[in-house]
Design a protein around this nucleic acid. Structure first.
Lengths: 122, 122
DNA sequence: AGTAGTGTATTAGATCTCTATTACACTATA
DNA sequence: TATAGTGTAATAGAGATCTAATACACTACT
């Protein structure tokens, strides 16, 4: 996995877990890979994985069971809002950046659409 | 100015300058505020400002004149591509994050549109 | 009981970012 | 020529992140 050098790795791993849950790769109640395996897969130190996971445990997205593993929560309330929360965070950041360039909301959409169209061609 | 604690300040200042140029606040050939004034305005150390500006000078977006100040380039080729470059970088990052959640391009647009609609109401 | 697999915790050191401080170089102008 | 305004450079120290290494606690299974 390739990380953005400008953002803490532990934070990017946190997002990675979010993405795996939202995409359905990690399902409700399912055990996620062990710490040491994640560390190898993502070529990162165990402590860095642990830092990311501990934040997700605090957020009650993951449930930790000593000796057993880490599991995706079965709380439907939390899982139900997850995708919308992550999406809103993404769009909010984008909006702020584009608004700082004096770009109107309507232009934001058309410009994004243009980007996607161009991407599709290639 | 409020900074995102997860991204280096010097990098965010670099983006800030880009935004000021693209929005038209800083025009071609125009002198930008002195280092020490930017440091006060953005409540950041002079060295941090300097680091951001030095990258922009290397990118030939700014031209430095010792004793006089820093000026926006008059190079139309560079200025002409600036907005598209920054936009593409923003969209590319968004695309990667959303694609990691198994979100299709068409849904990206509608979800973004929904975000903007919701934002308009408030 | 023993062993492997798991999560948790602590320490030390490297690197990066940011601040604070000081000094220097050049320009413009009184 | 003096002075204020500017960019440039270098050093030292604080804090955050990441790595490496080690140890400990709990679970499952033989």
């Amino acid at each position: 996995m390739q990380f953005d050098a400008k953002v803490p790795i532990y934070y990017q791993i946190k997002q990675y877990i979010y993405h795996e849950i939202i995409s359905g790769h990690f399902k409700a109640g399912q055990k996620i890979p062990p710490l040491r395996q994640l560390a190898v897969t993502l070529t990162v130190n165990v402590n860095t994985i642990q830092r990311a996971l501990s934040e997700l445990i605090t957020a009650k997205v993951l449930v930790s069971q000593r000796g057993k593993g880490n599991f995706v929560t079965t709380d439907d309330v939390i899982l139900g809002h997850l995708k919308q929360q992550v999406l809103t965070a993404e769009f909010s950041e984008l909006y702020d950046h584009l608004a700082a360039m004096n770009i109107a909301p309507a232009e934001m959409v058309t410009a994004f659409q243009s980007y996607l169209d161009q991407r599709k061609e290639a």
